[in-house]
């Protein structure tokens, strides 16, 4: 599948109708989501034929992208039942077979080294400090091959240090810097739209 085609399919997905600020629910736009998964597949072979988990999947955009690029088994995990309902409908619309689990990732009970790749657009930890680091910590325990994640560019040094020193990563690499446009979703947003700089990371867990 071509990048353009992937982006266009993801552009048709339903997004949050009532986003929850405490969960920092921001949709992962089709532009970023398509590039993230396309890079994971075309540069590293981390998607096709693999078991992929989408952490904090929200409406399921990243997981859907993984399934469209040929992942054999995709699992989306989110704490919010309304998001999971939208994610299920999105998967159905695209005729994708994706498993969803309702769970607070910090309390995830997991056996074994079965998941190859974790993809995620975690809460950036702006409202709840450290939320993105909680996600990263669990992702590096569950994945055997790679973790793809978005983090604010302003936290780059901190993310690298935590991943390598505390979370069992053998490598942590920023693949590219992206502009994440946050639409005016919540009342506390003063501007109509803001662009924030985010890094697309690839982490490799220690064997």
């Amino acid at each position: 599948m071509k990048l353009k085609q992937l982006e266009s399919l993801l552009g048709d997905l339903e997004q949050f109708s009532n986003p929850k600020v405490e969960l920092e629910q921001y949709p992962t736009g089709p532009h970023i989501a398509s590039r993230m998964l396309y890079t994971a597949e075309s540069s590293y072979g981390d998607v096709s034929g693999k078991v992929v988990a989408d952490f904090g999947c929200g409406c399921g955009t990243l997981g859907a992208a993984a399934a469209l690029l040929g992942a054999e088994h995709v699992i989306g995990i989110d704490v919010d039942p309304e998001s999971l309902e939208i994610a299920s409908l999105n998967a159905e619309d695209l005729e994708l077979d994706i498993d969803y689990i309702q769970c607070d990732l910090r309390n995830l009970g997991w056996r074994g080294q079965v998941v190859d790749t974790v993809v995620m657009n975690p809460p950036f930890g702006t409202r709840k400090k450290g939320a993105d680091m909680d996600f990263l910590c669990v992702a590096l325990k569950v994945a055997t091959q790679a973790v793809y994640s978005l983090h604010k560019t302003s936290t780059r040094d901190h993310v690298r240090r935590a991943a390598l020193r505390d979370f069992n990563a053998s490598s942590a690499e920023v693949l590219c810097e992206l502009r994440y446009d946050v639409p005016q979703l919540y009342k506390f947003h003063k501007k109509r739209e803001v662009d924030i700089a985010v890094d697309l990371w690839r982490f490799v867990p220690k064997k």
Binding site: H73, I75, D99, Y100, I101, G109, W110, R111
Partner: peptide, 22 residues
């Protein structure tokens, strides 16, 4: 939910030492 997912998922209740298989 497929059985592949079931094969990974475990109960993680506080105090539980072996929450697998469900």
């Amino acid at each position: 939910m497929r059985l592949l997912t079931h094969n990974m998922l475990a109960s993680n209740i506080k105090g539980v030492t072996n929450g697998f298989p469900l």
